[in-house]
Measured scan of single mutants.
Amino acid sequence: HAATELTPEQAAALKPYDRIVITGRFNAIGDAVSAVSRRADEEGAASFYVVDTSEFGNSGNWRVVADVYKA
């Protein structure tokens, strides 16, 4: 099962156990969220919340930071 994305309210009520950072070329924010979901799932997380997204220069590469939560 894939890790689910939390709302800001849900994330605020929970304590993350880790923070992950992924970088890559994403065509849309949805693609980045899917990549975070896969990584969170690999780490055994039940859910995640994207904290920050930023573009690296003009290369089209993105850096996505997310907190991950157990259950």
Rank of each mutant, 00 (worst) to 15 (best):
Phe48Asn: 00
Ile20Gln: 01
Glu43Leu: 15
Tyr49Phe: 14
Val50Ile: 15
Ala13Gln: 13
Glu43Asn: 08
Phe26Ile: 02
Ala11Leu: 03
Ala46Val: 12
Asp41Pro: 02
Ala11Trp: 05
Ala3Trp: 04
Ile29Pro: 10
Tyr49Cys: 07
Tyr69Thr: 00
Val33Lys: 13
His1Phe: 09
Ile29Tyr: 14
Arg39Ala: 11
Asp52Pro: 02
Gly30Trp: 12
Phe26Cys: 05
Gly24His: 02
Asn27Phe: 09
Ser37Pro: 03
His1Tyr: 09
Ser59Lys: 10
Val68Asp: 01
Asp52Trp: 13
Asp52Lys: 09
Gly60Asn: 06
Tyr49Ala: 05
Gly57Glu: 10
Trp62Tyr: 10
Glu9Asp: 11
Ala13Trp: 10
Tyr17Gly: 02
Pro16Ala: 07
Phe26Lys: 01
Ala3Asn: 02
Ala3Val: 11
Asp18Ala: 15
Ala11Cys: 07
Arg19Lys: 03
Gly57Gln: 07
Tyr17Phe: 13
Gly57Cys: 09
Val21Lys: 02
Gly24Leu: 06
Gly44His: 06
Arg19Phe: 04
Trp62Phe: 11
Lys70Arg: 12
Ala46Gln: 11
Ser47Val: 04
Asp67Lys: 03
Val65Asp: 01
Lys70Cys: 12
Asp18Arg: 14
Leu14Cys: 12
Glu43Lys: 11
Thr7Asn: 07
Ala12Met: 11
Ala11Ile: 03
Glu42Pro: 01
Thr4Gln: 12
Glu5Val: 06
Ser54Gln: 15
Ala28Ser: 15
Val68Ala: 01
Gly44Val: 02
Arg25Asp: 05
Phe26His: 02
Gly60His: 06
Asp18Trp: 10
Leu6Val: 02
Val68Ser: 00
Pro16Arg: 05
Thr4Tyr: 14
Lys70Ser: 08
Asp18Pro: 01
Val64Ala: 01
Asn27Ile: 10
Ser59Ala: 11
Gln10Val: 07
Ala45Asn: 03
Gly30Lys: 14
Ser47Lys: 05
Ala45Phe: 14
Val36Tyr: 00
Lys15Met: 11
Tyr69Phe: 11
Gly60Glu: 07
Gly57Ser: 09
Glu5Gln: 13
Val50Leu: 10
Arg25Leu: 08
Ala11Ser: 05
Lys15Glu: 10
Tyr17Lys: 01
Phe48Arg: 01
Gln10Gly: 05
Asn61Tyr: 15
Glu42Ala: 13
Val64Ile: 14
Ile20Met: 05
Ser54Glu: 14
Lys15Asn: 07
Thr7Lys: 07
Ala66Leu: 06
Tyr17Glu: 00
Thr53Pro: 02
Val50His: 01
Arg25Val: 10
Thr4Pro: 03
Asp31Leu: 07
Ala28Gly: 15
Gly24Cys: 07
Gly30Asp: 12
Leu14Val: 06
Trp62Thr: 04
